[in-house]
Write a protein that binds this DNA or RNA. Structure first.
Lengths: 201, 201
DNA sequence: TCAGACATGTAAGTCGTTACATGATTCA
DNA sequence: TGAATCATGTAACGACTTACATGTCTGA
């Protein structure tokens, strides 16, 4: 049994930084959490409603002077407790599913040529991700050194919060390290497969 | 839209190595693919039925002399085509969801202490996985050097198939590399957070 | 005026897990 | 005899995504 229901905690966690609308939350996730988390509206709005129903969040209508009516949610004391419990509790060891690794494994029967093609394709994919992460890392590292928070992140990170900026940089850097490990693996795999191919022919 | 339905391809791929029962497939996935793939019976048996319904696999009842009736599935020509198309087609860039990274990111507001606790916990978790993978890697590397297939893998890998054994070893080794990258990241993160903590106090 | 961002929501469908139900055979 | 393994399947639930539906405001 045991429902993961992790969307709840992501929402609660973001709300613990201040009141937000569903739309805000979606944007924040896209800006700051996209390399390790995602949420869709179809998940978000119902989750917000259920949080309110359970007393973990409160909904308030912002009267629209100019724009369309927004619904602003704030976390309650109960919500903070539930969030803190989750944070302190056990963290699931994720069971991943990698389509690439599945293909690669299953390509073993078709011979090293096909496996090689797959690795090369994967390498290109990962190299693109690597560049992206490396660029963000540079921006954030510089910001941390200067001690200020980049504009785009001001909704996600409190001004002058060095610990928050550091944690943000570190989450990104884990992604970077993993991608670089995969890149190194690609090179090893290509070399071993090429040698295998050379020996067979 | 576009249904992933990747279980179909995993099944088709395993079937392309020879006829198997649902139970066999489950076991094979557990033995050989567990670090990057999983299947549950609740997914497997319906998938097998739908494969038969679409003419991609054939079902045959094995008359049980001793044991309970088994249903053996074989791949058809059509199944091979569908499988080959998937193998040649584009590979999805996975959108991962890491509960750890979510917690870590969200812990930034609670200060570096909480973040440190999370990283240390994660490090222990990853270290355990690392040991496991490293042990398997040693066994497989030795087998590859000797040129024989370990007994436990004889259902998954054809005897004398060096390319298959190599690919098997390489899938494992990607896992190993990634885990080791995470371990290195943990050390970096711990160091940076400790320094942050020291400077603040 | 029209594209793009802002903004909220629902419906349908897929994917996947867990728990349940059932029953045979083997071996200690 | 009883636990473990072999073996097949279903029911219920939960999580999540996509597409759809709708409408406002801002600025080029």
């Amino acid at each position: 049994m045991s429902a993961p229901r992790k969307t709840r905690f992501a929402v609660l966690g973001l709300l613990s930084g201040g009141p937000l609308s569903g739309y805000d939350i979606k944007k924040l996730v896209e800006i700051g959490l996209s390399h390790f988390w995602s949420e869709s509206y179809g998940q978000l709005y119902p989750t917000l409603e259920s949080l309110v129903a359970e007393g973990l969040a409160e909904k308030r209508a912002e009267q629209g002077v100019g724009r369309r009516q927004r619904h602003i949610y704030s976390i309650t004391e109960g919500g903070r407790e539930v969030f803190a419990e989750w944070l302190a509790g056990p963290t699931e060891v994720p069971k991943m599913r990698s389509e690439f690794l599945l293909k690669f494994f299953l390509s073993g029967r078709d011979g090293a040529d096909e496996s090689l093609r797959l690795v090369r394709e994967f390498r290109d994919q990962q190299a693109a991700v690597d560049e992206e992460y490396a660029a963000s890392d540079a921006v954030l590292s510089a910001a941390l050194a200067r001690g200020d928070v980049p504009d785009e992140l001001s909704d996600l990170i409190e001004a002058d919060s060095r610990p928050q900026l550091l944690v943000f940089l570190l989450t990104l850097r884990q992604g970077l390290r993993v991608v670089e490990a995969r890149l190194a693996w690609c090179d090893e795999a290509i070399e071993m497969l090429e040698r295998e191919l050379a020996e067979t022919t």
